[in-house]
Design a protein around this nucleic acid. Structure first.
Lengths: 371, 371
DNA sequence: CTTAGCACTCTCGCCTGTTGACTGCTAAAT
DNA sequence: ATTTAGCAGTCAACAGGCGAGAGTGCTAAG
């Protein structure tokens, strides 16, 4: 039978995917012939489309409408057909420049990365803050707020800051607090959570016994680090909700009241995914583990709530030191070429910035063009 | 003529507003009679509605649809007609309890306030962080990140923290940084931005001249404080976007393609207002200045983009020390009674919490019931 | 293997008449 | 003078029907 994937069929599949991504309407045989100047007739294209449908790469909404790619169709497109042109060097320069302007502020890098991703991909973006492979304490500061209340500022390697207010059992002067934090910083600097617990255990049996406040602070530090470690898993910054919602799959032209509710529900789900990261759980560690750009399309997701979405993720950071994940999420009909090259490029830029921050020599000029 | 606002007309207006808020569909004369068991006929109600329309409190979309309140109608309702029942004490307790659970974390209070407001009012909420009437520096800490890079942590009265990475011209040890920050803290503590500039000017001409790093740090501190002061103006936390977008005015049952674009545009505008606070500019200071709950309805807004919205704001905080603003925003058809009492109550709770944080004795038991 | 041609299917927009929801008016009733 | 029943008039919403158009799938000829 003629069920193998000939060159021409691949070409037609490619055109259909591109056309559908662009127009969001089912693609008809004649459109392909006219718009792309195929040297065969629409009838031939129809036959080929029939085969592609049998092979599972396309579907029909109903008898008389054009073809639409299936998840498998997108997958094949991403894997074998799509043009893998990197961002133009003009675009690269613009992006670098924007990052240059917010030099020195991690939070702003993250926001900027999210904004650029969203705008380029016309979909929502996800960025996790870079996570240290293991958290290490750098500094502990205590600051008096008033008599019986102090602010604990915990600085971690990499410059993240956690703060926590502390209720004191007895009033302390700023000078006392200073001494205590100096002592604790000395003892704790460079230690991870595990090591801190050891120190804490040891202090409990020390003679002379340390001040109760010292213990209280250290306990809080340990708790805060654990808490932060957990938070980190879930902490996802996102942007571009509106870009995604502008896609016609979210607010289509409706007719009935029940459709309205479906639309609202769809929007609610989308916001929920972005806000809580629901369903993204398994993807992040997966992206962290592997290099390169991960693409998960529609039904390939393990989570039901993502069946309508595709997610494109890449790891960024410094091997063995810190790493985060960033990417794009949108309906399966999204511009994979554009999204993938943007995600790839931004992950490079972020990695460079982090190397800078962590004092590793950067490889800007090399990495720029491996995109 | 019979154009004065008799008791009965007021009652009918009240019912219409309530009914419209609840159902979001124009209110017919007969519905009022049936649903609320009026002792007059629908014809009489119609006559009265006609008068109310002449007075400017109601409108007609077209001849044969029910009545809808105008902005003036809502205004009169809010001013004179609505039931001003406070939140039930059960609700009050639940809310207090939720705040109790996140004791000690200002950020979380703000988030929680936003979440509760949004859920109760079924609309979007706005919360500005409490702003000190004048910013005063509490503490300056320098933390070495690596050789030529340090983290400046600036703690302000009230426990806000600003951080900034600093590129050093020459390498410094943590010990040196410690000394410098100790010296600066001593000099700067309790000073506002103006005073800090004086100190800076003075230091420049001192003999012996202070280290260049010291000057650099102080400059950064001053810059950070100014920057923060400006940021504060605009910094608005918001939540409940989805609650607001679920209201039928945002994603109605549509038919045509052009309507779809209008809907998307509406959603975009709404998100824009919440994200950037566009149009809210004048409202915040106004709410800060006056006590009580401010209600601005539809066309009463000076900003065009808010013509379709109502905003309910209240100040919270401690007189003369810190204050912020919180409130609700939604379509003019929103539940004013519910929103207003929630806003009022949450502002009380937040004020209590702040008094606690700032070490002023609280008046919980008194204030609870003035709601 | 390709393609012209055609029948068939299904959507969409359009029109139509119809229904039903309200109003506004009028004239009688209170 | 106010209320109200009754009724005409208006308009949106809906359902059904129709035609046009879009696209396919098939067939038979090139």
């Amino acid at each position: 039978m003629g069920a193998e994937l000939t060159e021409r069929r691949q070409h037609i599949l490619k055109l259909i995917v591109q056309e559908f991504i662009e127009t969001a309407t089912p693609v008809a045989s004649e459109v392909l012939v006219k718009k792309y100047g195929l040297s065969v007739s629409s009838a031939t294209v129809r036959n080929e489309m029939g085969v592609l449908e049998d092979l599972g790469y396309l579907t029909h909404l109903h008898t008389s409408a054009g073809r639409v790619p299936t998840d498998a169709g997108y997958r094949f497109f991403v894997e074998n057909l799509m043009d893998r042109t990197p961002l133009s060097s003009a675009e690269q320069r613009t992006i670098r420049h924007q990052f240059y302007q917010v030099r020195g502020e991690l939070d702003q890098w993250i926001q900027l990365a999210g904004a650029v991703l969203a705008r380029k991909a016309q979909n929502a973006s996800l960025v996790t803050p870079p996570r240290a492979d293991q958290l290490r304490c750098k500094n502990v500061e205590l600051i008096a707020i008033h008599d019986t209340m102090a602010l604990l500022v915990l600085v971690l390697h990499g410059g993240t800051i956690k703060q926590q207010t502390l209720t004191l059992e007895t009033a302390r002067s700023q000078e006392e607090l200073r001494r205590i934090s100096a002592r604790l910083t000395e003892r704790c600097t460079d230690s991870g959570a595990a090591r801190l617990e050891e120190i804490l255990a040891q202090m409990r049996v020390e003679t002379p016994p340390p001040g109760e406040l010292e213990l209280q602070v250290l306990e809080t530090v340990v708790r805060a680090m654990h808490q932060y470690e957990e938070q980190q898993q879930e902490q996802i910054y996102s942007d571009g909700l509106i870009e995604m919602l502008s896609q016609p799959e979210f607010i289509p032209a409706l007719t009935r009241e029940e459709d309205r509710e479906r639309a609202v529900e769809r929007v609610r789900r989308a916001m929920d995914i972005l806000k809580s990261g629901r369903g993204l759980g398994p993807l992040i560690p997966q992206a962290l583990a592997s290099g390169g750009v991960q693409v998960v399309i529609g039904g390939e997701h393990s989570a039901d709530e993502l069946r309508q979405y595709s997610v494109i993720l890449a790891r960024y950071g410094i091997d063995g030191t810190v790493s985060g994940v960033l990417g794009v999420i949108g309906p399966t009909r999204m511009s994979y070429p554009r999204s993938i090259s943007t995600v790839r490029y931004i992950s490079l830029v972020m990695s460079d910035l982090l190397r800078d921050l962590y004092g590793v020599e950067t490889h800007m000029s090399e990495s720029d063009d491996t995109n």
